[in-house]
């Protein structure tokens, strides 16, 4: 980055500015120590956490790790199946964590973990009305993304593939359609398997990537976190640089020889 004149490139999200475009999840890490190292290597400035019943014998807290690192805590509503559950969970998170940000996640069923668009939209409307900065996790659906933006969401977070699947971005065309139409940031959420997936998300024009399993379940989470950090930066830089068009035939990179 020191060799070229990079434009000022910050992520504006929910009225705040961030340098990192990699948002980390915390699910799947074998221990808090492993998570801590991965977060450091990722360079993330925002990390999402779930809300669950307090375990009186639990030792250590993910909150302690995030606070020590100065990482913004983004509560999510993982585990909710209805708008009502998600709204209550968001309100509890606001109370517990003193933030009005929420990653809205309303799941349709346990087998696919795909987001339920009807419940998600219902919850989004209620949370926006209640003053939340709402970041909804959705399918790769351009129409739903537009409706959620119109409803006042601060970003849209389409999936690349089902949660934890590592299948990458199954429908890049739809992600591009969402990016083209969106006035709010588009955050590619779920499905990332390896660094090239994260780079592709950014090359397609996403403003950020959210991932968890790809790092936390990697054989070396700290190393994969470093790879994801580099991939997001590379993909973003390539997007800003403007790639060459794909062509059916060759185009010589040097002039043809004369005579």
């Amino acid at each position: 980055m020191t060799m070229v004149d990079m434009p000022d490139d910050v992520l504006s999200l929910g009225g705040e500015k961030f340098t990192s475009r990699l948002i980390m999840g915390t699910g799947g890490a074998p221990s808090l120590d492993v998570l801590d190292q991965a977060l450091e290597e990722s360079g993330t400035e925002i990390t999402t956490v779930a809300m669950r019943r307090l375990d009186p014998v639990a030792r250590g807290s993910v909150l302690d790790v995030l606070r020590r690192r100065g990482i913004k805590v983004l509560p999510n509503t993982a585990g909710c199946f209805t708008a009502g559950e998600a709204v209550l969970t968001a309100r509890l998170a606001r109370e517990a964590l003193e933030t009005n940000w929420v990653k809205l996640e309303v799941i349709a069923d346990e087998r696919t973990l795909l987001p339920d668009p009807i419940e998600t939209f219902d919850a989004a409307e209620r949370l926006v009305a209640d003053g939340f900065v709402v970041l909804p996790y959705i399918g790769d659906d351009p129409a739903l993304a537009r409706r959620l933006e119109q409803a006042g969401c601060a970003a849209v977070m389409p999936l690349g593939a089902p949660i934890g699947s590592g299948l990458g971005i199954r429908n890049p065309h739809n992600i591009e359609l969402i990016v083209e139409a969106a006035e709010v940031p588009v955050i590619l959420d779920a499905g990332i398997g390896t660094a090239s997936d994260a780079a592709l998300a950014m090359e397609l024009g996403c403003d950020a990537v959210l991932l968890a399993s790809a790092v936390t379940r990697a054989q070396r989470p700290d190393l994969m976190a470093a790879a994801m950090r580099a991939a997001v930066t590379a993909g973003r830089t390539a997007r800003l640089a403007g790639r060459i068009p794909m062509k059916r035939y060759a185009e010589a990179s040097s002039p043809a020889r004369q005579g």
């Binding site: 998570l35 779930a50 019943r53």
Partner: peptide, 26 residues
């Protein structure tokens, strides 16, 4: 029930109380 109201809010018989915190997930 916001924290500022914890001490002034009495519970009643058969109330369902949920105490939540942040954990790894999502």
């Amino acid at each position: 029930v916001s924290r500022s109201a914890w001490e002034s809010t009495p519970l009643a018989d058969s109330d369902l109380v949920e105490v939540l915190t942040a954990v790894q997930g999502g």
